[in-house]
Design a protein around this nucleic acid. Sequence first.
RNA 1: UGGGGUAUAGUGUAAUGGUAGCACAAUAGAUUCUGGUUCUAUUUGUCCGGGUUCAAAUCCUGGUACCCCAGCCA
Length: 575
Amino acid sequence: MRQQYNDQKSENEGGKEASVDFIRTIVAEDISTNKWNGKVITRFPPEPNGFLHIGHAKSICLNFGIADENKGGRCHLRFDDTNPVTEEDRYVNSIQEDVRWLGWDWGEHLYYASDYFEQMYEYAVQLIENGFAYICDLDASQISEYRGTLKSPGKDSPYRNRSVEENVDLFRRMKEGAFEDGYCVLRAKIDMASPNMNLRDPVMYRILHTEHHRTGSKWSIYPTYDWAHGLEDSIESVTHSICTLEFENHRPLYDWYLDKLEIHHPQQIEFARLELTYTVMSKRKLLQLVDEGHVKGWDDPRIPTICGMRRRGYSPEAIREFCRRIGINKFNSTIDIALLEHCIRDNLNKTSNRVMAVLKPLKVIIDNYPEDEEEWMDAVNNPEDQSAGTRKVPFSKVLYIEQDDFMEDPPKKFYRLGPGREVRLRYAYFVTCTDVVKNDDGKIVELHCSYDPATQGGNAPDGRKVKSTLHWVSASHALRAEVRLYDHLFSKERPEVTAEGEDFRSNLNPKSLQVLSDCMVEPGLKDVRHLTRFQFERLGYFCVDTDTTGDRLIFNRTVTLRDTWAKIKKKGQEK
RNA sequence: UGGGGUAUAGUGUAAUGGUAGCACAAUAGAUUCUGGUUCUAUUUGUCCGGGUUCAAAUCCUGGUACCCCAGCCA
């Protein structure tokens, strides 16, 4: 289990200890009352039928976190593989990779529901023998019809009162593959009139002649989730079975099974799923986005899958911090994605090396700088971290600066370069714009500047100030790169809110991806490794995309820097 | 014949009968070789109505709103 990097409890202003979430409170109480002999065993139980997303990260950090914070605690990674129709090995692998990448370690405790199939079968036989379960020949639609509705009771299946002997025999034949798919099911005999629909004789086993990713063709019957899940937790001696809100209604059913079987009975605690603004979280919607090509795959940096976020440049630390900050509760809430962005900025500000990159290049010629000269300027790698050291950046007569950093007719609050203005080129010289060259369409194609040799390194010996500092690259030294700028995938805070007859896809942001292919970056970036994170000075945090090859550099923008100028500009436009 | 949950600034989240606090966001300012970071300040809140109490977000009571449940999905 990983070392906890900071204590759960933090200090309030008044010096009071901030309280922990309600689940940790329960766990702490259970420890103090010795309810489980001091043990804390949690689990993260994904079904291997899809990729993990930030919502899963919330659950992962909760379960592994609680185990980690308590002495002797442990958290199991268990694949809930009870439905072979949708499950695949590739998901098993990606889930393990993602959990590990997030920084958690399940040690020896990797489990599969399918490892318990034999035991579950025996438990089922036990229930049948005690008259608590029966084989039902009703088909799916009949079962549904007999179940009744939310406001009216169901009615008993005509097969409800089969003898124990007949039930045992039929169940055995189900297992042996004597019947085709859907011929009959095993149901718990509870109460068809229960106000809780889950208790109206739920299905425990269905016949499925389907190859299972681990057990192959050994089984022709598979347990349903509701039957299996509580057993899995029980078999593993889980103490705190933490799940999402929608399973609250199922708890009485799990209680019923465990009580009838008289086996270890974990405590189930429910919490609310994570929702985020400007994105969608459900497996179904994510799948739809991928399948219909709205995004380029499960690791598209625009979707909140763990692999997508990894590719986007998110760090595990930032995701963990985010999960810590959002808290745990029992009511649905939607977290402002700005909090996630704050967490990654905060983390990357402290950890990422700075580098100069020009996204939309504008050529600048320093007229009074010698033609053949080049100088290598000292640049600080990370002002927040002395140990990151410095590097050399080449300067020469022809440079590129950002198009956005020049305006021919600058408004009042624009501090950057303009005709006749002097600015600092970071780590290099003060330069003054002397001429603007335009093409036939009136577009600015080139700037001429003069530099002040006395300001070498970026400081004026006479102490004169300059209103802004620009980033730049030397044209002859720069490396060409492609940069992918990402914006929110949806243009609405809540993509699900749509006009009549439309769905969340109508809120897709057409500008969620902007590809710039003529970017110029400093030469030090020549042999960067995939997923290395940088701050491009004054622009944002970027990471090396996995499409990058030896001769093709590609960066993903993780998040912009906070941008006060953009706000001012926007406000000006709104007026 | 319905049942199970939940409501605190814009968004999250604390306060378990005793000053409604924190974070994000927003706004203003200071610092700055990143319009970044950092620092300071400011705005905004207990779903509604009654009641108990010296004192209620908290206890009682009556409403209201929202979420979940009728898969042989998980």
